[in-house]
Amino acid sequence: MPDQTRIGVLALQGDFAEHIHMLELLGVPAIEVRKVEQLEEIDGLIIPGGESTTIVKLLHMFEFVDALRARVESGMALWGTCAGMIVIARELADPYPTPLDLIDINVARNYFGRQVDSFEAELYITGIEGDPMRAVFIRAPIVQSTGDSVETLAVVPAKEDGTPEQAVAVRKGRVLATSFHPELTEDTRLHALFVSLAEESRTDSTDRSPIRQTTEESPSTV
């Protein structure tokens, strides 16, 4: 078992380099994940911003889907930002693409409109102390509804034009999803929160690993 928590950033497409930069600022080693075997080497995976349709297709093309589900079920931390949130949702408001159902949320894509309607906002987020975070919304999705025990961490308030309050950051256990792009700012607080979830995951698997070694592996490989 490695002595440091390792984070992977899915590098099939999107702004994975920006996430890796944020993790570097926190002193946390991060790898670009392009092959499914790499999921075994990490305690937490970030699915970055990008084009959700493209990322879902590439996850299928490169046979990530089952392995990713198995790793999340065995406790690996997971965070989807923007496109990443869409990819891991249970269900989308529009029929296409089919998301991976890794957190029980229903997501509406491009909720705020097309690119010309993209914007930034100040956001208070449960679990993030101090000043609000500057949140960058780019063709952003929102969470329309959440399943049992999914916690809403942040909302965009209702607007005067009648647009109701919308959830833009949610969490269930070690799975986190955000509509916006903290990786496009200098604010590392959400990344620090995610690293703590991955640390939990590593500690868990370290606790279990002696049992795993004696029961699942032959003595010669121990």
């Binding site: 999107g14 702004d15 690119q115 500057r134 960058v136 780019i138």
Partner: peptide, 20 residues
């Protein structure tokens, strides 16, 4: 300045296209 949105939002979409 970090608070200016327009530029980051514009350039940001291009960031999302990377590797594509």
């Amino acid at each position: 300045k970090p608070e200016v949105g327009d530029w980051r939002v514009k350039g940001g979409l291009a960031q999302m296209l990377k590797g594509g």
